[in-house]
Write a protein that binds this DNA or RNA. Sequence first.
RNA 1: GGGGCUGUAGCUCAGCUUGGUUAGAGUGCCGCACUGUCACUGCGGAGGUCGCGGGUUCGAGCCCCGUCAGCCCCGCCA
Length: 591
Amino acid sequence: MASTTLRTHRCGALSRADVGSKVRLGGWIHRRRDLGGIVFLDLRDRDGLVQLACNPLWTPAAALTLAASVGVESVVLVEGEVTLRDEPGRDPKLASREVEVRVSRLRMVGAAATPAIPVARREGEELAAEELRLQYRVLDLRRPELQANLIMRHHLLQRARRTLSDLGFLEIETPILTKPTPEGARDFLVPSRVHPGECYALPQSPQIYKQLLMMSGFDRYFQIARCFRDEDLRADRQPEFTQIDLEASFVAEADVLAVVEAVLRDQWAEAGHLVAVPFPHLTHREAMERFGIDKPDLRFGLEITDLSDRVGPGAAPFVHDALPRNGRLRGIVAEDTALSRKEIDSLADAAKSAGAGGLLWARFEDAGWEGQGVKAFGPELLAQTVVPSGAMLLAVVGADAMTSPALHAVRTRLAQRPGIIFPGRHAFAWIVDFPLFEQDQSTGEWVFTHHPFTSPHPDDIEFLETEPWRCRALHYDAVYNGNELGSGSIRITDPVIQATVFRFLGISAEEQRNRFGFLLDALASGAPPHGGFALGFDRIAMLLAGASSLRDVIAFPKTTAARALFEGAPITVSAKDLAALHLRTLGKETG
RNA sequence: GGGGCUGUAGCUCAGCUUGGUUAGAGUGCCGCACUGUCACUGCGGAGGUCGCGGGUUCGAGCCCCGUCAGCCCCGCCA
């Protein structure tokens, strides 16, 4: 497959089996070792490295001269014979380390300027600054680590297509130029030249289109969909990203989950990991109660417990004061942890930066409870708390909205201690029964937790008109080792329920028509029950590649300021180009 | 929108605590030597707007203010 007019093999593909054969290779000079009379070159391509041996015994003088002067990262074409090496190369990962190519012809085809950032690093040498890696992305992408990441990404994509196609899903593309959506994330807008003052938006997800496809009878749809959101970035968030997007008709929640489990099981298998299905289920309420977060890391315990009803008269006044005001005393028992004072401070910092006023702690020793929190907890609580010697009680008092994130932060920090998380564990879980609506912390307004097409839980329909905040949703998240991999839901197909949801959210009938008229009409034209899911593919690739940033599994990523350093986007456009789009800029100071 | 960290040779970093002679190291690059290396080795050499702008000072890589860029986090991400 690697054979072309110019070459017979890839460098890294050569092995013992090729000994004795004449080969032609093309690749990049990775390193040069010039010993005077003889020269060794490491030649690299996407399969790996092979050593080229240039020796006057078999290499013509001109080729030897070139070998002695060729710069690293230059592209050469080589002819020679594969021979067994007396001593194999030292890199045990290289399949080609047992052989070398005795060079009989060498031709420079792509001379390289001295690389601005190193491709071949010395042992233990740090990577160049990420800014430079992104600026010289062509060089950075030559590094074997990034080559491996993108090759794995390819295999994962092909596997996702195969899994879903085998399950009867049809890959259907949806538009990139779409209609702006006023809620949700900020849209990237594309001004129309033909229609002055009007804009398209790039899709935040193919959500509505895939539902329309269900109304059209396509039954099972999927797409490897590029999505765009104009929000501030993180290590695990890019302005454009890839989802494995799917939707199916005549399904209930369990059907969608089974499909997604198959996709995830196969993705992990593609990366060499066997994972068991089905995944355990956890309700949203339970996840928040036991782990303080809706994407708990289930690789370890350290669960949160409610200590409120153990609080006795001897507890500190501020604990008593907090309890009647919707507050609870919640904590984590950490067993057998000889935490230093510094580590405890670090846990307290974690709790504080998550919004807690402070972290209460007490340690149980042979002599009894000791620590800063003993007085706060009071004797009654401590007497009822039976723990092994050396264990520690870490707690926070207040409203759940504060204690949950604080204790999640403490739990996560505790798990960084060695021995808490066994490496190689794959803790998948479904989080189900999310609330349909949640209250905006700053404005107090009710907003949808997921999106307004998510179906209420059938058991809670009765509350929709009277106590909508009690409604659970047929919404589910896939969680892996504390990461959200994706989410989905069963959609509303009853126009009456859809109108009720819109009304509760304060969207008028007129607004409903303007924004979602096409969807409402489609629902009224014969809608099958349907639901679906979207998996964050970049994040999956990142986790399976063992990368710490999305940028290491995307060929040309943006910076945290959403700039493309390699090609230099975005740029200021000319007044003429703006005029063609009927636009004028306000300038930086007023913008 | 807010907070934190970083910015010194092509690259990775030291120097800043306590302002003071000519800003150092490793690597890469260039030159010379070297016939079995694999992070080749040895010798020599070149290479610096100390991110940018302003200020304090007799004097600023170092102190102060601003600004730009990258990274991390909060807000945000239906």
